[in-house]
Protein backbone atom coordinates (compact mmCIF):
# COMPACT_ATOMS: atom_id res chain seq x y z
CA UNK A 1 0.00 0.00 0.00
CA UNK A 2 1.42 3.33 -0.96
CA UNK A 3 1.48 6.25 1.41
CA UNK A 4 -1.12 8.04 -0.72
CA UNK A 5 -3.44 5.09 -0.61
CA UNK A 6 -3.02 4.68 3.12
CA UNK A 7 -3.79 8.33 3.67
CA UNK A 8 -6.89 8.12 1.52
CA UNK A 9 -7.94 4.99 3.33
CA UNK A 10 -7.49 6.65 6.68
CA UNK A 11 -9.40 9.73 5.65
CA UNK A 12 -12.22 7.51 4.45
CA UNK A 13 -12.32 5.61 7.73
CA UNK A 14 -12.32 8.79 9.77
CA UNK A 15 -15.17 10.15 7.70
CA UNK A 16 -17.15 6.97 8.23
CA UNK A 17 -16.53 7.10 11.97
CA UNK A 18 -17.54 10.73 12.10
CA UNK A 19 -20.83 9.99 10.34
CA UNK A 20 -21.50 6.97 12.55
CA UNK A 21 -20.86 8.87 15.75
CA UNK A 22 -22.85 11.88 14.58
CA UNK A 23 -25.87 9.71 13.74
CA UNK A 24 -25.80 7.97 17.11
CA UNK A 25 -25.44 11.28 18.98
CA UNK A 26 -28.24 12.92 16.97
CA UNK A 27 -30.55 9.94 17.61
CA UNK A 28 -29.91 10.11 21.34
CA UNK A 29 -30.33 13.88 21.40
CA UNK A 30 -33.65 13.47 19.62
CA UNK A 31 -34.78 10.94 22.25
CA UNK A 32 -33.83 13.31 25.08
CA UNK A 33 -35.61 16.25 23.46
CA UNK A 34 -38.66 14.08 22.95
CA UNK A 35 -38.65 13.01 26.62
CA UNK A 36 -38.40 16.60 27.83
CA UNK A 37 -41.11 17.87 25.50
CA UNK A 38 -43.42 14.98 26.39
CA UNK A 39 -42.85 15.62 30.09
CA UNK A 40 -43.55 19.31 29.65
CA UNK A 41 -46.76 18.57 27.75
CA UNK A 42 -47.92 16.14 30.41
CA UNK A 43 -47.98 18.99 32.92
CA UNK A 44 -49.99 20.99 30.43
CA UNK A 45 -52.94 18.58 30.58
CA UNK A 46 -53.67 20.17 33.96
CA UNK A 47 -55.39 23.52 33.56
CA UNK A 48 -53.33 26.39 34.85
CA UNK A 49 -52.94 30.14 34.57
CA UNK A 50 -53.27 31.30 30.96
CA UNK A 51 -55.51 28.43 29.83
CA UNK A 52 -59.12 28.76 28.79
CA UNK A 53 -61.29 27.37 31.61
CA UNK A 54 -63.20 24.33 30.30
CA UNK A 55 -66.96 24.61 30.32
CA UNK A 56 -69.33 22.68 32.59
CA UNK A 57 -72.90 22.87 33.79
CA UNK A 58 -74.18 21.92 37.26
CA UNK A 59 -77.30 22.42 39.33
CA UNK A 60 -77.33 25.05 42.05
CA UNK A 61 -78.66 24.02 45.48
CA UNK A 62 -78.18 27.00 47.76
CA UNK A 63 -81.70 28.16 48.69
CA UNK A 64 -80.30 31.62 49.45
CA UNK A 65 -79.33 32.07 45.82
CA UNK A 66 -81.78 32.67 42.99
CA UNK A 67 -79.95 30.69 40.29
CA UNK A 68 -81.16 27.17 39.43
CA UNK A 69 -78.14 25.98 37.51
CA UNK A 70 -74.89 27.42 36.27
CA UNK A 71 -73.05 26.93 33.03
CA UNK A 72 -69.61 28.45 33.18
CA UNK A 73 -69.68 29.74 29.61
CA UNK A 74 -72.78 31.78 30.44
CA UNK A 75 -70.77 33.76 32.98
CA UNK A 76 -68.58 35.32 30.28
CA UNK A 77 -68.16 38.99 31.00
CA UNK A 78 -67.92 38.32 34.71
CA UNK A 79 -64.91 37.43 36.76
CA UNK A 80 -65.38 33.96 38.26
CA UNK A 81 -63.99 32.43 41.41
CA UNK A 82 -64.31 28.68 40.85
CA UNK A 83 -63.89 26.98 44.21
CA UNK A 84 -63.79 23.23 44.82
CA UNK A 85 -64.71 22.31 48.38
CA UNK A 86 -66.41 19.87 50.78
CA UNK A 87 -67.94 20.20 54.23
CA UNK A 88 -65.54 17.78 55.92
CA UNK A 89 -62.50 19.67 54.65
CA UNK A 90 -61.16 21.97 57.35
CA UNK A 91 -59.24 24.49 55.21
CA UNK A 92 -62.36 24.80 53.00
CA UNK A 93 -64.38 25.64 56.06
CA UNK A 94 -61.78 28.24 57.03
CA UNK A 95 -62.05 30.22 53.80
CA UNK A 96 -65.84 30.10 53.40
CA UNK A 97 -66.60 33.02 55.76
CA UNK A 98 -64.15 35.22 53.83
CA UNK A 99 -65.85 34.36 50.56
CA UNK A 100 -69.23 35.21 52.04
CA UNK A 101 -67.90 38.43 53.49
CA UNK A 102 -66.66 39.72 50.14
CA UNK A 103 -69.40 38.22 47.97
CA UNK A 104 -72.11 40.96 48.12
CA UNK A 105 -69.65 43.75 47.40
CA UNK A 106 -67.87 42.01 44.52
CA UNK A 107 -71.06 40.62 43.03
CA UNK A 108 -72.01 44.23 42.41
CA UNK A 109 -68.67 44.77 40.72
CA UNK A 110 -69.20 41.82 38.39
CA UNK A 111 -67.61 38.83 40.12
CA UNK A 112 -69.42 35.54 40.64
CA UNK A 113 -68.42 32.85 43.10
CA UNK A 114 -69.03 29.31 41.89
CA UNK A 115 -68.50 26.80 44.69
CA UNK A 116 -68.41 23.23 43.39
CA UNK A 117 -69.20 20.89 46.27
CA UNK A 118 -67.82 17.37 46.50
CA UNK A 119 -69.88 15.92 49.32
CA UNK A 120 -72.11 12.95 48.62
CA UNK A 121 -75.30 14.12 50.31
CA UNK A 122 -76.95 17.50 50.23
CA UNK A 123 -78.12 17.50 53.85
CA UNK A 124 -74.68 18.23 55.21
CA UNK A 125 -74.27 20.93 52.58
CA UNK A 126 -77.58 22.55 53.54
CA UNK A 127 -76.57 22.54 57.20
CA UNK A 128 -73.22 24.02 56.31
CA UNK A 129 -74.91 26.79 54.27
CA UNK A 130 -77.13 27.57 57.27
CA UNK A 131 -74.19 27.60 59.65
CA UNK A 132 -72.30 30.23 57.66
CA UNK A 133 -75.28 31.96 56.01
CA UNK A 134 -73.77 31.46 52.57
CA UNK A 135 -75.49 33.24 49.69
CA UNK A 136 -73.28 32.43 46.70
CA UNK A 137 -74.14 29.55 44.34
CA UNK A 138 -73.25 26.05 45.48
CA UNK A 139 -73.12 23.27 42.91
CA UNK A 140 -72.90 19.61 43.88
CA UNK A 141 -70.69 17.49 41.59
CA UNK A 142 -71.91 14.07 42.65
CA UNK A 143 -70.31 12.17 39.80
CA UNK A 144 -67.08 14.12 40.21
CA UNK A 145 -67.19 15.01 36.53
CA UNK A 146 -66.11 18.61 36.94
CA UNK A 147 -63.48 17.60 39.48
CA UNK A 148 -62.10 15.14 36.93
CA UNK A 149 -62.30 17.77 34.17
CA UNK A 150 -60.25 20.27 36.16
CA UNK A 151 -57.97 17.49 37.51
CA UNK A 152 -58.55 18.67 41.05
CA UNK A 153 -56.81 16.45 43.59
CA UNK A 154 -56.88 17.76 47.10
CA UNK A 155 -59.35 20.27 48.50
CA UNK A 156 -59.72 23.17 48.55
CA UNK A 157 -58.60 24.22 45.10
CA UNK A 158 -59.59 27.52 43.58
CA UNK A 159 -59.41 28.88 40.05
CA UNK A 160 -59.70 32.59 39.37
CA UNK A 161 -61.10 33.18 35.90
CA UNK A 162 -61.32 36.54 34.13
CA UNK A 163 -64.22 37.94 32.11
CA UNK A 164 -62.92 36.22 28.96
CA UNK A 165 -62.97 32.80 30.55
CA UNK A 166 -59.19 32.62 30.93
CA UNK A 167 -57.69 31.19 34.13
CA UNK A 168 -55.71 33.95 35.79
CA UNK A 169 -54.54 32.05 38.85
CA UNK A 170 -54.95 28.75 40.65
CA UNK A 171 -54.66 28.50 44.41
CA UNK A 172 -54.21 25.20 46.23
CA UNK A 173 -55.21 25.38 49.86
CA UNK A 174 -57.09 27.89 51.92
CA UNK A 175 -57.21 31.60 51.06
CA UNK A 176 -56.91 34.35 53.61
CA UNK A 177 -59.23 37.35 53.43
CA UNK A 178 -56.36 39.49 52.23
CA UNK A 179 -55.33 37.06 49.49
CA UNK A 180 -58.89 36.60 48.36
CA UNK A 181 -59.35 40.33 47.94
CA UNK A 182 -56.11 40.55 45.95
CA UNK A 183 -57.29 37.75 43.68
CA UNK A 184 -60.63 39.47 43.17
CA UNK A 185 -58.85 42.64 42.08
CA UNK A 186 -57.08 40.62 39.39
CA UNK A 187 -60.26 39.25 37.83
CA UNK A 188 -62.38 42.38 38.14
CA UNK A 189 -64.01 42.93 34.73
CA UNK A 190 -62.84 46.05 32.94
CA UNK A 191 -65.74 48.33 32.27
Amino acid sequence: MSLEQRKANKAHKMKKRFIFRSIILILMLAAIVYALVANFNKDKSIYRAGDQAPDFKLEQINANNELESIQLSELKGKGVMLNFWATYCKPCEAEMPFMEKLYPEYKEKGIEIVAVNLDVNTLVVDRFIDKYDLTFPILPDHKEQVMDLYKVGKLPSTFFIDENGVIVDKVDGALTLENLEKQFQKILPKK
Partner: peptide, 12 residues
Protein backbone atom coordinates in the same frame (compact mmCIF):
# COMPACT_ATOMS: atom_id res chain seq x y z
CA UNK B 1 -45.07 18.75 45.95
CA UNK B 2 -47.62 16.08 45.02
CA UNK B 3 -47.46 14.68 48.56
CA UNK B 4 -48.18 17.91 50.38
CA UNK B 5 -50.83 16.79 52.87
CA UNK B 6 -54.40 17.94 52.12
CA UNK B 7 -54.86 19.39 55.61
CA UNK B 8 -52.00 21.84 55.08
CA UNK B 9 -53.19 25.41 55.50
CA UNK B 10 -51.81 26.31 52.11
CA UNK B 11 -50.78 23.65 49.64
CA UNK B 12 -49.11 26.25 47.46
Amino acid sequence: AEYIPPEAVSRD
